[in-house]
């Protein structure tokens, strides 16, 4: 455990080096939040509610979605692909560490960095500059837990795609396909309530919604019942355990095809 914490600390410190990039990320977020504000304002066009959501609820959902977007991107897929292509992976395999946990803690260091440098400032801007009233409720309390579970799920997807590189030795296409599947099906761009009913039903049975829809709903509609929130967290937890297990099994298969040329 101690060695994993050291890895976490290291990647946090590396993240610090790229401070000035954060400004651009925050600028990007502010721009995105402004543009989505205009977009959703013209979608609502003075209507009280759409699909059971008020404008404020939808806007908080979408704006916060963009704030946690950078946080939930672990880049583990790119990192693994790089390590596999360059042969660096061999140096990890001979160390007494677990590849999955190594990558988890490594990416989590960056995540803590971007949480403090990007997500929190964006959130504060949302409240103070955009004057968005965050409604109070139990959802708000459960949000951090839900966000952590969402991070673990997002990690599983990225790790899985990274492992696929053992076979393909290339990442761009895989990663971009995964990104688009996750962002659309998880309700990162639009609340799931807007999807046609049949599609919505299917999506609720898939793991994607647990990444964006669940935490964002906790913030946007924090006054739903306890039972609703607990079952949402339960579903998240189920997917985390399932996907962690599945990616571990997959790793055992994938590592067999590894070839390293030269050294």
């Amino acid at each position: 455990m101690k060695s994993y914490l050291a890895i976490l600390r290291g990647s946090y410190m590396i993240g610090l080096v790229y401070r000035y990039g954060f400004l651009f990320n925050i600028a990007g977020n502010v721009l995105y939040m402004s543009v989505t504000y205009f977009l959703w304002r013209s979608i609502y066009q003075g209507r009280e509610t759409l699909n059971g959501l008020t404008f404020d609820q939808t806007y908080i959902y979408v704006a916060l979605g963009s704030a946690i977007f950078i946080l939930l991107k672990t880049y583990v897929d790119w990192q693994l692909a790089f390590d596999i292509r360059e042969g660096m992976i061999a140096t990890y395999l001979i160390k007494p560490i677990d590849l999955q946990l190594y990558n988890l803690f490594n990416s989590f260091g960056y995540a803590l960095m971007s949480l403090s440098a990007i997500t929190v400032p964006t959130f504060l801007l949302l409240v103070f500059a955009f004057k968005i009233q965050i409604p109070l409720g139990i959802g708000l309390v459960l949000f951090p837990i839900s966000l952590l579970l969402a991070y673990l799920l997002s990690f599983c997807f990225d790790y899985f795609v990274g492992l696929l590189c053992f076979y393909t030795e290339s990442i761009w296409g895989l990663s971009i396909t995964k990104d688009i599947i996750v962002t659309v099906l998880s309700g990162a761009l639009i609340p799931l309530q807007f999807f046609p009913d049949a599609i919505q039903k299917v999506l609720m049975w898939l793991p994607f919604q647990a990444i964006y829809y669940t935490p964002l709903t906790m913030i946007a509609q924090p006054n739903l019942s306890w039972e609703t929130f607990l079952s949402m967290l339960g579903v998240q937890l189920f997917w985390v355990v399932a996907l962690f297990g599945l990616t571990r099994l997959f790793y055992d298969q994938a590592v067999k095809v590894l070839r390293i040329s030269g050294g």
Partner: peptide
């Protein structure tokens, strides 16, 4: 890298349609 080209093309196709899907 033929496989890469095919996967990348598919990814490109879907990602460029995302906003239209929205």
């Amino acid at each position: 890298y033929r496989a890469d080209f095919i996967i990348s093309s598919i990814g490109m196709f879907f990602s460029s349609l995302a906003t239209l899907g929205v």
